[in-house]
Design a protein around this nucleic acid. Structure first.
Lengths: 326, 326
DNA sequence: GCAAAAACGCGAACCGATTCGCGTTTTGGG
DNA sequence: CCCAAAACGCGAATCGGTTCGCGTTTTTGC
């Protein structure tokens, strides 16, 4: 591999001149030519490690999420990477699959690998752990989708409680008195907020809360699938069910169709995230759509601003979800 | 940030001793103690850039794919990153969204950013371009899902032609004489191979080929959706349709359900990739399942072997797809 | 207890860029 | 045409690790 010295020798100037030229500095016209020629002849490309060693950054940002198969995160990351790429940054992406050890390890790695900033959707990390891990490392971090109470950094969230309130209220107003919810782990921020919306809607609608109608489990297919079956086997099954996550929605829909139940005839159903699927099934079901594109864009912009030196107080952006009922 | 020299000073040994210790070398017991103490006290972490500058690698691999939302790639990448993480490698992931300029740019970036190896699913790159871009860069590359004819590197593929042959033959044997296919761009390797399977099955089944029954477009939802609608509007519509990609499958299913047509009653349908959805709809439809896990694992292993010095002839792994009919 | 062998520690060179201050060349205005 | 100011080029220092050969210490076997 050619180094900057080789180029300098061939072009007949000093390495520092090459460096200056590459980085946008002014150089005499005749030197521009000979440098260009030398670079082309040697197919010179700056060694990224040497450059980063000196400058302290490398134009990359980390993205740490629980899961990259979920359509929600897939969309967020895709949009996010579009924004950062416009500024010539790239993404180091890692997922930890709802595994606490993995989450810690990946975060540790991310913080030590030289990225210029991090976008992070925490699942199960305490403020103490977060502060301990990030104490001696000064890259900016933006939380998405979830926050860690007590951690003060930029965050991009959605109005979880409000949109679930709206959805459940709608069901209650139609006369449903037994509305079930299938939701994620009680420890996860989004699940908690969505639960709040559920409870508030029941109480505002004067519907009695029945804890048997609350199914909480991992954010995965099986939770939705088994949860729905369990609900249907009850002595007095719910007349409406809402899922609060995309994998759970898929599981619920699968179980629903296996039962041969018609949504809105026998039972009313509310999905989450998977707009494509929910609008596709025979009788489309209403579904909560999160603003994935905006989440990705806001997170990217917040982070880039910090990387470029912005130093104001932590900001929190709450984005609105939409209910799609086709 | 503390450097290795700070640690050395505090521990009372030379920097080279710290380095040796960190990298697994033997050091006297008393020194181990004082070094450990110093590292802890200073919260020392090796500067990744300095290390990579000297060693020439950084334990990261690039993953370049057309699209990271598709469940197919999502699964492949998830499995792949599991394997590389076991060896303490991490993934730099980028997608280019079926955009030729983007694909070139991203490839260029990947080759210049210091990764130790690349896993790449090409969409629209010629062998000449590939060779030009990779000429002066010596990291190993493993192609997945698709190959570039004329490029000789490790590749992990699936038996596209065979599985489509099997699927279409099944339809033909049931008596269908008008079998349509909705498939990706004619230029994409996988679409080509799948088309071969289709044509061979027709011909082996003595069914006349009708080019009107072949819909080819981008690998996206709209292709499946509009393609299916177009097929249904024909004077003599097909009695069976196969989609050959996950987004196309989703589009096709959506159109199908909007028409209120029952698969296997009015029409026979074959999906691709989206096993979860295809098995979920009211009347489950058979679907081609690609071995995403195995693809990811093979690709990762091939690449790691090359990174670790394996230098044999290029290998090609063809993995078998499965037909799931629930 | 001694010699040979093994283990260990050290310093200096090095990886390949960027940066900074200083000296030289070029430019522009009067 | 000359002088001051601006533009430009250069060399040396630096970023923070790793590596290598050599000298010293420790271990081993007799």
């Amino acid at each position: 591999m050619a180094t900057i010295k080789d180029v300098a020798r061939m072009a007949g100037v000093a390495p520092s001149t090459i460096s200056k030229y590459i980085n946008g500095g002014n150089v005499r016209k005749e030197n521009v030519e000979s440098i260009d020629k030398a670079i082309a002849a040697l197919d010179y490309r700056a060694n990224p490690f040497a450059r980063s060693l000196k400058t302290g950054h490398n134009r990359s940002i980390g993205v740490l999420i629980p899961d990259m198969i979920a359509s929600f995160y897939g969309n967020v990351v895709t949009n996010l990477s579009r924004v950062v790429r416009e500024k010539d940054y790239h993404c180091l992406i890692s997922s930890f699959g709802a595994n606490h050890g993995m989450e810690r390890d990946n975060l540790k790695f991310m913080l030590g690998c030289g990225i210029d900033g991090l976008i992070y959707a925490p699942e199960d990390l305490s403020a103490d752990e977060f502060n301990e891990l990030t104490a001696h490392c000064s890259i900016p971090i933006v939380l998405i989708d979830r926050i860690i109470p007590g951690v003060e950094v930029d965050a991009v969230l959605v109005d979880n409680a409000e949109v679930v309130y709206e959805a459940v209220s709608g069901l209650v107003n139609k006369g449903h008195t037994r509305v079930a919810i299938i939701t994620g782990p009680k420890s996860v921020y989004t699940a908690k907020e969505r639960m709040v919306g559920y409870l508030r809607a029941l109480s505002d609608g004067n519907v009695l809360y029945d804890e048997e109608l609350v199914i909480s489990g991992k954010n995965e297919f099986a939770t939705g699938y088994q949860g729905f079956r369990k609900l249907m086997k009850m002595a007095e099954p719910p007349t409406a069910v809402i899922a609060t996550n995309d994998d759970i929605t898929m599981g619920m829909l699968t179980a629903l169709h296996e039962y041969g139940i018609h949504p809105s005839g026998d039972i009313e159903i509310f999905g989450f995230d998977r707009v494509d699927v929910c609008s596709m099934v025979k009788k489309p079901i209403p579904v909560v759509q999160q603003p994935e594109q905006a989440i990705g864009q806001f997170a990217a912009r917040y982070l880039l601003e910090r990387i470029e030196g912005f130093n104001g107080a932590p900001r929190t952006q709450r984005l609105k979800c939409k209910i799609v009922s086709k």
